[in-house]
Design a protein around this nucleic acid. Structure first.
Lengths: 186, 186
DNA sequence: TACCTCATGTAAAGCGTTACATGATTCG
DNA sequence: CGAATCATGTAACGCTTTACATGAGGTA
């Protein structure tokens, strides 16, 4: 599960984090393209513990539940690395790619470049079939007696524009970032 | 539920659609920012039927289950309109806005402009707090003994860039579309 | 021969959110 | 004086996906 990897990644980046900390980091950061509430985080941490991917140090507090400061184990690190190396399972949106790349500080230069190359190919493919698919196709299905084709075309074209422009922005960003990393990354 | 409104909207736009058709429309279209499988669509249609929001015409076929061609009822139309008029419940992403605006052909000019105005205000707010939040904040939490701050900064900055640029694109698009609709829409 | 399209649906398992439960301290 | 912060967790509910079930006809 994605949440497992995300929490494991966060714990590797910020050792000694508690469940409460992880929740705050996820909420405050735009970087982890993830929504997760505390009542989702705690059971997940328990699962990671049961599987031996994390351990914790117990800090007793007065008048509050003990603080559990989590660390990643070697086994957890291995499990996380396998996910970091695996190709991103991209859907139409960019979320999965951005989430995994949030943990790029844990990846080698080669792995990072490979992820960018793969995503670039995938989105180029999307972009090529886009004009054939997309909202414009919908006009064919439309009940033309009830809806003004011109008005509907104007409205749907606008939606298609934001879709196409967003994809173009992503392609540009993928190329530029890849180039910069190739040059500057150690 | 969002899926209820989406199917209701699709049925209003394409009368005589079957569950199978709706699935194809959703899959082929980039417009309906929605994922839904057949095993999700069929129970939803049944629910809409039970509540009196849709009716269907049964077309017997040879060697296949009967074709059910759905239409929206006046009650369903009312229910849909209430959703179309209600403010979009936007999260960080743009999905909810784009989904509702896919049905803008069913809205009056006034309602469309109001949706754009609201979304513009919401995203302006997001954009103002973004530099304070965002990935940059994460560098504070980072374990500086294990990770090279400069390398991590380069990588996270890139993620921040795509976030910020996407938001800027959305703001530009919202303003431009709103202006165009104000002028050209009937 | 094997897969895709058409056409409907059920059942089970997985995933995620909201509500519930407790309780001191600090800030406005 | 009330709200937010810190700190953990359980239970119930609901949404969504995957797997299962059926079956003919057309296409590669």
């Amino acid at each position: 599960m994605e949440i497992d990897y995300a929490l494991l990644g966060l714990i590797q980046l910020h050792p000694a984090a508690t469940g409460y900390d992880l929740n705050r980091i996820i909420k405050e950061s735009t970087g982890y393209f993830l929504t997760a509430s505390l009542s989702h985080i705690y059971p997940t941490l328990k699962r990671l513990l049961d599987r031996g991917y994390v351990s914790y140090e117990n800090i007793p507090l007065k008048n509050r539940p003990d603080k559990k400061m989590y660390q990643i184990t070697p086994k957890g690190s291995e499990y996380l690395q396998a996910w970091l190396n695996a190709p991103v399972e991209s859907g139409l949106d960019f979320r999965a790619f951005c989430l995994k790349m949030s943990f790029s500080p844990l990846m080698s230069k080669e792995v990072i470049l490979r992820h960018f190359d793969r995503e670039l190919e995938y989105r180029k493919g999307l972009h090529e079939i886009a004009p054939k698919r997309g909202i414009l196709i919908e006009l064919d299905y439309l009940d033309k007696e009830k809806f003004d084709t011109k008005r509907t075309g104007l409205l749907w074209d606008s939606i298609y524009q934001i879709y196409a422009q967003t994809e173009e922005l992503r392609l540009r960003w993928l190329v530029e970032s890849r180039d910069r990393f190739e040059k500057d990354l150690t």
